[in-house]
Amino acid sequence: FYSEFCGSEGTRPDHLQDDRLPLNQETLSLAQKEDQSLKPFFEQVTSENVVDKDSSGFMLENGVLIRCWPNPVSEGADWGITRQIVVPQALRQKVISMAHSSDWSGHLGVNKTYHSLLQHFFWPGMKKQVAMFCKECHVCQMVGKPNQVIHPAPLHPLPVVITPFDHVIIDCVGPLPPSKTGKRYLLTIMCVATRFPEAVPLSSITTKAVIKALTTFFSVFGLPGCQPPCVLLL
């Protein structure tokens, strides 16, 4: 029962053994008794046999304070009583870190981290503390979902174009598998009015190479006719 919390040996891989707390039952029991916030729970300790299936109760198991919690999915069945270690204040941050930030936890969200902890642990104000820990987690801030809602950028419809080549759309595609002549990129040009496409193969997409290709294109079809010339770069 204590293998996930204390430092006893288990079957987990060696690289996960460091996630365990360097505790034994005696040390945990002493830490619980010295924690004044747990005093009301010690006063509620009763025998395991009289713990109600429909309400929480506290008991001592080998000197360790345990909360017997009827799991909501159990519907009052005997097998549905979950035994939770009551965690003293000095160990709570470490326990949350194990459930959220360790190699095997996966940086889950507040609710999943909280419900994962509920299967083994309890202390007053646990969900609030879990929420604060997840909110301040550096890894989650860097790669996780943002806390705020990001509204989509407003869409601006393109103007209706009638005259050919007044507006053109330009994009660069690649790198692609090289051709026989070593071309790995395409400069694509499309007329907005007629949808006429042009694809110019390029060896590179440097400024010099792109300008040379555009000069060749505009020398054939003319510069965009709008004032100023409208070229859309994708």
Rank of each mutant, 00 (worst) to 15 (best):
A199H: 09
P177G: 08
E61Y: 04
R195K: 13
V220D: 08
L108C: 15
L186D: 02
G225D: 00
F42P: 03
V51L: 15
N62C: 01
Q89W: 04
Y114T: 06
C134V: 15
A153V: 15
D166A: 08
P88F: 14
S116P: 02
I211S: 09
P72Q: 13
C137V: 09
D52A: 07
G225M: 03
Q148M: 13
N62W: 00
G7A: 06
K180H: 05
G10I: 12
A193G: 03
D52G: 08
I205Q: 02
K145D: 06
V192M: 07
T181S: 12
G63D: 00
H156M: 11
K53Y: 10
P201N: 07
L202T: 05
A199I: 09
N71D: 13
S3D: 09
A193K: 00
I81C: 04
V95N: 04
P152L: 08
K208P: 00
T207L: 10
K183D: 12
D19I: 03
S29Q: 03
G10E: 07
V51F: 12
V87F: 02
M190A: 12
A90P: 00
K128W: 14
V143W: 08
H107D: 10
L186F: 10
A153P: 05
E26S: 13
L91E: 03
D78E: 13
H15E: 09
L186H: 02
R12G: 11
H138P: 08
P159H: 05
P201L: 05
L214M: 13
P175F: 10
H120V: 03
M98H: 05
W79N: 07
H120M: 08
Q84K: 03
